[in-house]
Structure formats: C-alpha cells, structure tokens
Write a protein that binds this DNA or RNA. Structure first.
Lengths: 235, 235
DNA sequence: CGTCATTTTGAGGTATTTCAACGAAGGTGG
DNA sequence: CCACCTTCGTTGAAATACCTCAAAATGACG
C-alpha cells in the first residue's frame, strides 16, 4: 500500500446524540488498521467494480470520485440504489454475494477491504465496528429517504428532493448554491425511477421557473432556495 | 424483568457467507446481556410507541405482534417506512432523535433497551455488536428493496411484490400459501405509496385473476404462485 | 471535423389520483 | 343483545402526469 494515498474516512451521522461534532470519523489508529488490510486502487470512469450475485470478497471505501450501485430488473430496466461519494462505503452483500452491481461514474480512488478479514477485525475492535455500525444505520436512513423520494408522483418534485438530498450528502450542513452532478441524466432517471424524458422535462421546468439553473449539465445552481425547499416539501 | 417472558431474538441474514444456517441469532449469553439492560413491555393494539423527532432513548426489539414505523409528510400524507415482526429491531435514530414515528398494529410484546447503555455494551462485546451490524445491513437491503417496490408504476405489481416480500420476511424460505396481513388496507396503501382506492382495486384485480384470494381481509392466500411471481418480476 | 452517444422536444396512450358516495365492519354503551 | 357511531373499505367517473414511441438537436470524443 503506497503511503502517499489519501487515508480512508467514513462520513456518517451518529444515531446517538453527541455533544461534539455531528460526524463520526475514524481516528488515526483505526485508519491504520483499515489501511493495513486494504488495497488502495485508482480506476478510470465507467469501470465496473462488481456484479450483483457475484461472490462478495471486498468492501469498498470511496475516497475520491463518484460511484453508482444498481440493480438490473427482469424487464431490462435498471434501478440505481445509491450514488457513493468520498467517505461512503459500499459493497452491500447478503450470504456472501453482492446485492447490487457497482460501477465507477468518474475516475475514482477506492480502498478495497477483504470482507472476511474486516469482519474479524471488527469483532475484535469494538470502537471500529461501532463506526461501521453508525455507517450502516446511516445507510438505512438514506435508503428510507430515497424510498420517500421515489414514492412521489411528480417528476419536478422528485428532482427537487434529489438535488437537496445530494447536496446534503456531499456537503452536510454547509449548503453551497452549486451542486455538482457527476452522473448522467440517465443515471438520475434510473435513480428517481423516471424515464429519461421525464428528467429532461423536469430540469427544463425547474430552469423555466427560475428555481435552478443547469449551467453545465454537470452543475446545478440553486437560484431560489425557498421555492426549491417548498417544492421538495410539497409531498 | 419477569423471567417468564419470551427472550429477545434478532432475525437477519448475514452479509458474509456462512456454511451453517442462514440466520444470525443471539446466543444465550448475548440474550442474557440484552435482557439484563432491558424492560419487557406488553402493549395493546394501536398504542403509539414514539414520535418522530422526539429524543431517542430506547431501541426496541419486537418479540410478539406487529409494529409500523412511519413518517408524516408536510402535505398530510403518511408514508410507512417498515412493518416490524417478531425478531425485528426498531428505533432508528439520528443525532439522538427518532427519524420515524412508531405505533403498534396488533397487541405487541417488546423489549425496550436504553440506547446509551446498549451502545456501551456493544462497544465492549464485539460479537453482540456484530449481530446488530448484521441486522443493520439487513435493514439496508430491506429499505432498498422497498424503494424498488415503490418505484413501480402499476398497483397490482406493487401489491404482488409486497405480498412476496412480506412472506419472505415473516417465514424466510418456507413459503406457506396463507400470508397474514395484520395491517389495514390504509397501512398497505401508505407503505406502497398508493391511494387506498388503488390498493382496493389491486386486491380485487388479483382476486379476479385468480392469483390471490383474500379470504379474511387479514389473510391473503396465494392461489397461483407462478403467476404471482411472474407479476412481481414484471418490473 | 465527423461520428456516436446523450439529451431535448413532440404527440398520443394508459395508469393512477382525486372527488364523491355508498356499503361494511368493529367497538361502545345502553 | 342490539343500536349507534366511527372507521375502514369498495365502487364509479373525470382529470392529471408520466410513459412510450419517434425524431431532431446538442454535446462529447477521437
């Protein structure tokens, strides 16, 4: 493992109330433990990382770039389960097999952790495991939130909620106007369970109403925060 | 704590492959640890258990009956996040506050575990914590599966997936014809993000097509397994 | 600068939502 | 045990919003 690599971190809110900062982060020792059993890999955009149902040998920690996990449905449609950014963990498995497929969206830097080795480590290091437990609970909240988003009927509303959730995910409580959108419109459609055309019309609608401007197709600039939040809350 | 109570168990599939049985269960020592810090409570149907945003003091383990967790949306609509059956854990929190509200559906028996005490216990008992980690990962899968269900457009398909998921949840791989439905039609509607009328028409449709018969409103009997699974897979 | 993938725009079909009213079920008190 | 009331569930008809199919336009990349 090259020591010049950026160390792995895990972004998550705790489920317990804490007096100090709201984020749970790994300390130096825990990072060293992870690094000690991991491989740091750098991969180009679009690189497939694993396929659903294949043996789950590794857990991944994203340190740079964007990743998507998804499921191909019997009809040929595809549903994106999550977008993963730096500090996110992925490699969701059940009975030793991956539940989703995963693919790099941009160029990414990942820590690849052998799952069985990690499991042993976690059993012996309660503090480290607690960090992963917090992250898993965090993932439950995110998945539930996504279910709420997808349950909406109107495309502009779904898109509004998506943009806000994305910003919250990437920047926490500091909420800049410009939201990077590394994924394609098709990716957004597959995440929101809309057709590509519906996403396109929804972006156009938000732009026409002066709520968001999509300068670059990969950057959304929030022009009217209050109307955006009102639209997101209109569910 | 009365010693005659049924002990707490946690139903979950592991994320690692295991040679033995597919379920992760607490051993006797772990159950005793949990019991030692818990209160066993028996509550009548419809009893509210906690409200979203209120301080999260307890984690709950369901040992008998059915519970729902839900979120009330700004519009007045309600989305049910999950139905909880014996062996399920609930009390999802973020920064010390519950994310959802919870209410008993039937008469229930619960173990009520103080969250801070539990967190200390978990930090010191890696094996016990590992069981909870497995359960949390299990919850992530369930929430993702629900997002897939809700993302469908057609009501009969959503209902078909719901029935199959419910059976899988309650009975694992032994799949009896009769699926108990302790929740009301409104609950199903709020879970599937459909209108009550749409659920009613969907049940009628499944019944008319001879796929499922709803003898009692609280029991669904699968008449044609292959057509049910084909409908569920038609996404 | 040409080619290919991605995105946008247009028109019609179909499903659910909504609104309204009816019917059934369950619980409570006399 | 029955009447009443409230909640829950069913049915019907019109409106809305997305999906699908098709084609044009834009952007990315070699």
């Amino acid at each position: 493992l090259s020591s010049g690599d950026r160390p792995p971190t895990i972004r998550t809110n705790p489920f317990l109330a804490v007096t100090a900062g709201a984020e749970v982060r790994l300390n130096d020792r825990q990072r060293q433990e992870i690094i000690g059993i991991s491989t740091c890999v750098r991969l180009p955009a679009r690189m497939p990382l694993y396929r659903a149902q294949s043996p789950a040998k590794w857990l991944f920690i994203n340190v740079e770039g964007a990743v998507k996990t998804f499921r191909d449905l019997p009809s040929g449609k595809r549903r994106i389960a999550a977008f993963l950014f730096p500090g996110d963990v992925f490699g969701l498995a059940e009975n030793g097999r991956y539940v989703n497929s995963a693919q790099a969206i941009t160029r990414v830097t990942l820590y690849r952790v052998p799952l069985d080795t990690l499991a042993d480590l976690l059993r012996h290091d309660g503090e480290l495991q607690f960090a992963f437990l917090c992250k898993a609970v965090h993932e439950v909240r995110e998945a539930q939130q996504r279910a709420v988003i997808v349950s909406r009927r109107d495309a502009p509303g779904r898109l509004a909620m998506f943009l806000r959730a994305l910003r919250q995910n990437m920047f926490g409580d500091s909420q800049p106007d410009a939201i990077p959108l590394p994924m394609s419109r098709s990716d957004i459609a597959e995440f929101l369970a809309l057709s590509l055309e519906a996403v396109s019309r929804a972006t156009g609608e938000l732009e026409r109403r002066g709520i968001v401007s999509f300068e670059d197709r990969h950057v959304a600039r929030v022009l009217d925060e209050s109307r955006l939040s009102r639209l997101a809350a209109a569910l």
